[in-house]
Design a protein around this nucleic acid. Structure first.
Lengths: 333, 333
DNA sequence: CTGAAAGCGCTTACAG
DNA sequence: CTGAAAGCGCTTACAG
């Protein structure tokens, strides 16, 4: 058992005061070069590292941020976390991870924790239930405690905070247009997130592209059974010739249903999905997808948060839009 | 701006000492019921919560554990994290997440951080590079600092610590046997993790099942291009009639290559993969897979770690094996 | 250039 | 039953 050495112990061994040791290690100009050298040498020998808890207590900073993730099974969020963590590592920040599982109750508990002083800032994608109920009081309480909050990805909601995400409306507008350019006449949309802000924006983008004269084909449900039914209806009865899928589940389900009903992709049905790149290329056929660049969103959110923490930003909240890319693969060719 | 209220402030408002307030809030029998009530009332009014950093400093515990994840894009690890986080939440423990990206260098940096006193314990799945180089010195250093370490999932390596994972050898033995029972004669294996302990065990299980008399068909490479070539060779030239895939990438790649070469699943080729359940059912055809119950592994590892931290376990290190299940779907029927 | 003192927000052994 | 004091491991304004 190695016991971590403290300043006090170092001071005793060197026959100087604790203050001197502390200053020497922090390169204070007050201390003579000779002493600095002696101190640093011994510190290195004993592999001294300051106790982070003590430093935090003094500075009333924790060097830690909290990240709230709605659903880690969704690889999009896993990759956002990856971007956050990479950026944190560069800046020497620790990341506390919390998973809300889309639950308002759980989100409240997490926030309760966070406001007790664990973290210097919070990154959050608001849970589905929270958005459905439009209950943002707990989020306000974070801000009341003077802890900066940045919303990532799920940014289309009526809550004032810094936001980092994509332009959901434009992305879907562009995607629908691409399908039109490919000669598709009956374009449907599948979504399990239509009751969330981002979901609504995506549908709005789809409508914008189709225009008033064309009928809309919308399969929307957060319940998988019901979504399955609605998508099947679009594919089999309405015989749409293209599908736009707004999220991971609806993308995979659309693919699966086309397979089950013997509908050929892309000849009979073109598909654009929201799915991560590594999976997109493996699907059969490979699927055209919108690369949401999750790592970039994560890193961007982290950057905004750090600027906010360090007081480097103007008062008004900002909205940072990350550019996405539509990657064409077999499903639209 | 709400400033967090402190014990001192509370004491001032109540005209008692800080000690009294502290004891009252901690239900010390020393304090009169009346005082306890007064104190608690005011504390509740001001939503007092103890500063965790100060409490940590006193107790020299952080109530935090560190989790090192090799690769978060792999949904298996994302789900393990989910299990860890859920268990942590129950026990009131915070989780610091670190992603090694399979890099030894990064893993060393993370450990450097962890040993400076941030955490009470560490959960780790050792990075690929680390295992390849068998360089475990940094892990030993965690233990030297008296911080308990539990290895999860990647447990077949020569490093003594508590371990929680699955019986990789048996799982693959059983899977290969199932394919034999289904009448398959030429069973191949695809793996991108053959140089890791778990990968070796899986191949060993496959060999055990085939026995000495049958030829082995092994496609192994950590490089995707090279793996693609080797799997193609098994499928097209060797004409294997079943494939066992040891990990996420090799599973998806095998499926994709069968599709590209017009090989029908399951009639011409039966496949068993390592992939998460939600994806397995959506693939076309749906794929039989080994459910590694990642959440259970995460929760189990957390439990062992907490017991270790609280000194509730005997000296010798333990190995906890989690039961898996083979879920049959269309690809083996 | 060095050190004693105060303090970050708590807990707890000790005295009264 | 209450409070003063010491201490967890640091930093820093102040004195010398």
């Amino acid at each position: 058992m190695k016991n971590r050495i403290t300043l006090k112990e170092l001071a005793r061994l060197l026959n100087v005061s604790v203050s001197t040791v502390s200053k020497a290690l922090n390169d204070s100009p007050e201390i003579s070069p000779k002493t600095v050298e002696r101190v640093k040498e011994l510190a290195a020998l004993h592999k001294y590292r300051p106790n982070p808890t003590a430093v935090n207590l003094k500075s009333s900073k924790s060097g830690t941020i909290g990240v709230i993730i709605p659903n880690i099974s969704n690889s999009f969020f896993a990759n956002v976390l990856s971007g956050i963590e990479a950026e944190a590592q560069k800046k020497g920040i620790q990341v506390m991870t919390y998973i809300s599982n889309e639950s308002l109750e759980r989100e409240k508990q997490i926030v309760e924790h966070l406001t007790s002083g664990f973290v210097d800032g919070v990154l959050i994608a608001v849970a589905e239930e929270t958005q459905r109920q439009k209950n943002y009081d707990h989020l306000k309480s974070i801000i009341d405690y003077n802890i900066p909050v940045v919303l990532y990805d799920r940014i289309d909601l009526e809550f004032t905070a810094d936001k980092v995400g994509i332009d959901d409306r434009k992305v879907f507008f562009d995607a629908a247009q691409l399908l039109q350019e490919r000669g598709r006449k009956k374009i449907g949309i599948a979504t399990s997130i239509h009751h969330m802000g981002v979901g609504k924006e995506r549908i709005a983008g789809y409508r914008d592209a189709l225009g008033r004269e064309n009928p809309y084909y919308i399969a929307n449900s957060a319940k998988m059974d019901s979504l399955r039914e609605k998508v099947t209806n679009l594919l089999v009865n309405e015989k749409v010739d293209a599908m736009l899928c707004s999220d991971y589940s609806s993308t995979l389900m659309t693919y699966r249903l086309a397979y089950e009903h013997g509908i050929k992709i892309p000849s009979q049905l073109q598909v654009i999905g929201f799915i991560n790149g590594s999976l997109a290329g493996y699907l059969t056929p490979s699927i055209s997808y919108i690369d949401q660049v999750p790592e970039v969103i994560g890193a961007g959110a982290m950057e905004v948060l750090l600027n906010r923490i360090n007081g480097k930003m103007e008062k008004p909240k900002i909205k940072k839009i990350i550019e996405t890319e539509l990657i064409e693969m077999e499903s639209t060719k």
